[in-house]
Amino acid sequence: MSPVVKVVQPSGLLDGTKASLVRQEIDEIVANGADVVLIDLQDVTFIDSSGLGALVSALKAVRAAGGKLFICSINAQVRMLFELTSMDRVFQIFSNRDEFNKSVSSAN
């Protein structure tokens, strides 16, 4: 059986306000039975510390529900933040959605 994959695609600045909305959206997706959550950061220009905290919180919630959370399409500035905070070791990051789709389909 294929996993239920849901995509969250925030845009602009991922700060405290927007991050809490993204976190709520992920909570609803998990509550509705998604097995895999992909956060596509293609349209995100910058993430602050509260945005990063919300991503970590979302990861914990998805894992607690038995699911998996992945990230794709991060820009150079966001990648630098992830590397500085070692979040690139916490999250599995794909370069784009196609790479994610290939990985998920080959895992089944």
Score class of each variant (00 low, 15 high):
G67V: 04
S11T: 13
V22T: 06
I29A: 13
Q42K: 15
P10K: 07
F82N: 00
P3R: 08
S2G: 04
A65L: 01
V22S: 03
T45F: 03
V56C: 14
I47S: 09
I29G: 10
I74N: 06
G51V: 02
F91C: 06
K102N: 08
L13G: 05
A31L: 13
N108E: 13
V22P: 04
R97G: 02
A19L: 10
F100Q: 02
D15R: 13
L13P: 03
E99L: 10
D40R: 02
A54E: 04
N101V: 05
K102Y: 07
K102G: 01
D40L: 00
G51Q: 05
R89M: 15
V62T: 01
A58L: 06
I47L: 14
F91G: 03
E99G: 04
D88N: 15
D88V: 07
M80Q: 15
V8S: 11
I47W: 09
V4I: 09
V8I: 10
K18T: 11
A107D: 05
D88M: 13
L55V: 03
A61N: 13
M1L: 08
S50G: 11
A58P: 10
L84D: 02
L59T: 01
L81Q: 13
L59E: 05
E28M: 09
Q42V: 04
I47E: 05
M80N: 14
V30W: 14
L81N: 12
R97P: 01
D15M: 12
Q24G: 12
G53H: 12
L41E: 01
V36H: 05
F91Y: 11
I71L: 15
R79A: 09
V37E: 05
C72Y: 00
Q92E: 08
F91S: 07
K102F: 09
L84A: 06
S86M: 15
R89A: 14
R79C: 06
Q77W: 03
M87N: 15
G51S: 07
L55N: 03
N75H: 02
A54F: 07
V56H: 15
F100R: 04
L41F: 10
R23F: 15
G66W: 07
L41G: 00
L69G: 00
V90C: 12
E99D: 09
G53E: 04
R79F: 08
C72Q: 03
L41Y: 06
S49N: 14
M87E: 09
V44H: 00
V36D: 02
D27T: 12
K68F: 05
R79Y: 08
G67L: 01
I39P: 01
G12L: 03
V104L: 12
T45L: 06
G12W: 01
D98A: 14
E83S: 12
R63M: 08
R63W: 11
K68Y: 05
D40N: 02
V30T: 12
L38D: 02
F46S: 10
A54W: 07
K102E: 10
A65H: 03
M87T: 07
E25F: 10
V22L: 09
L59D: 01
E83G: 05
G12C: 01
A54H: 09
I26W: 04
K60I: 07
I39N: 04
S20P: 08
D40E: 01
S73H: 01
G66T: 00
V7H: 07
V90Q: 14
V5P: 06
Q77S: 02
N32M: 03
A31W: 13
E99I: 06
G16P: 10
K18C: 09
G12Y: 01
L38Y: 02
E25I: 07
N32H: 12
L21N: 13
P3W: 04
V22F: 06
